[in-house]
Computed example of a mutant assay.
Amino acid sequence: MTLTFDGTVLVPVADPDDGERTAAALAPLLTDRSTAVLVNVVEKAGGAPDKASVEQREEYAEEIFERARGPLEATDAAVETEIRYGTDVVDEIFAEARDRDVDAVVFTAREGSRFAELLTGSVARRLVKEAAVPVVALPHGDD
């Protein structure tokens, strides 16, 4: 069985390497009827000072999107981007998924230690546990 995405998929991207890696894993699964929506969530501090200015965060998001577009240029899929702002990354991802009425949220899990996951919580785990739409975890391209 070959997996393909013929509709709209939401692709959360956290940093340039993550965006490029996820796009490379996703590209072979897209068709000319696919739309990949790349979304970067700028995590707000919720009352505390933010780590960087909005302008810096938007520039970084554009860098992420640019790197992610690279592997997707070889496809016939449409590519859209969105920057979201909020105190909870997973909530923002699913809000965007609902707003766009996507068919699935697609990601590759970033490597991290179990200890770090316990301290910070895992976005990947929450995406699966709190899924409001189908969630697909793609294997890393080098696996």
Rank of each mutant, 00 (worst) to 15 (best):
D50V: 06
G141M: 08
H140T: 03
P139E: 07
P134Y: 10
V90M: 03
V54T: 14
E62Y: 03
R69D: 06
L118G: 05
R69Q: 08
E92V: 00
D142A: 13
L72A: 02
V135M: 09
A95P: 04
K44N: 08
T108P: 05
V102S: 07
L127G: 05
D142L: 13
K44Y: 10
V105N: 02
R98C: 02
R125P: 01
V136R: 04
D99P: 04
S34R: 03
R125T: 14
I93Y: 05
E66C: 00
P71Q: 00
F94M: 09
H140I: 01
G121M: 04
A24P: 02
H140N: 03
S122P: 07
D50H: 12
N40Y: 15
N40P: 04
T22R: 11
H140P: 00
V90N: 02
E96L: 06
F115E: 12
L29K: 10
D103S: 02
I64V: 14
D32Y: 01
V105K: 04
G47S: 03
P12G: 13
R98L: 11
V42R: 15
R67T: 06
F65C: 05
E63G: 09
L127N: 11
T2C: 08
E55W: 08
E80N: 06
R57L: 12
A52Q: 15
A74S: 14
V37C: 06
I83G: 11
E20C: 12
T75P: 05
A23H: 13
A78D: 15
A132P: 01
E63I: 01
T81Y: 07
S122G: 08
R21N: 09
A104Y: 07
E111Q: 13
E73W: 06
L127I: 13
R126S: 12
S113C: 05
A36S: 03
T108D: 04
K51H: 12
D101G: 07
K129D: 13
I93Q: 08
L26V: 01
V9N: 00
S113L: 04
E80F: 08
V90E: 08
E92K: 05
F94L: 01
V133P: 03
E62K: 10
R114W: 02
V79Y: 08
M1V: 13
A124L: 05
F107E: 12
D91R: 14
D88I: 05
V79P: 03
L38H: 10
E80S: 09
A25P: 04
A104W: 06
T35G: 00
E73H: 12
V89F: 04
K44E: 15
V133K: 13
R21W: 03
G86Y: 01
L10M: 02
A23S: 15
L119H: 01
G46H: 05
V39R: 02
E82G: 06
A116Y: 06
I93T: 10
N40S: 12
E59H: 12
E66I: 00
R33M: 05
A78I: 10
R57A: 15
G7R: 03
N40C: 09
A27V: 00
P134T: 11
P12E: 11
E130H: 13
A27D: 00
G7S: 01
V39L: 15
V123N: 07
E63L: 04
A25R: 00
V128I: 15
D88E: 07
D91Q: 12
V11M: 07
V54F: 10
T2Y: 11
L72G: 02
T120Y: 00
G86I: 06
I93L: 08
E62A: 14
G46R: 07
G70N: 11
L38S: 11
L10P: 03
R33D: 15
R57I: 12
P16R: 11
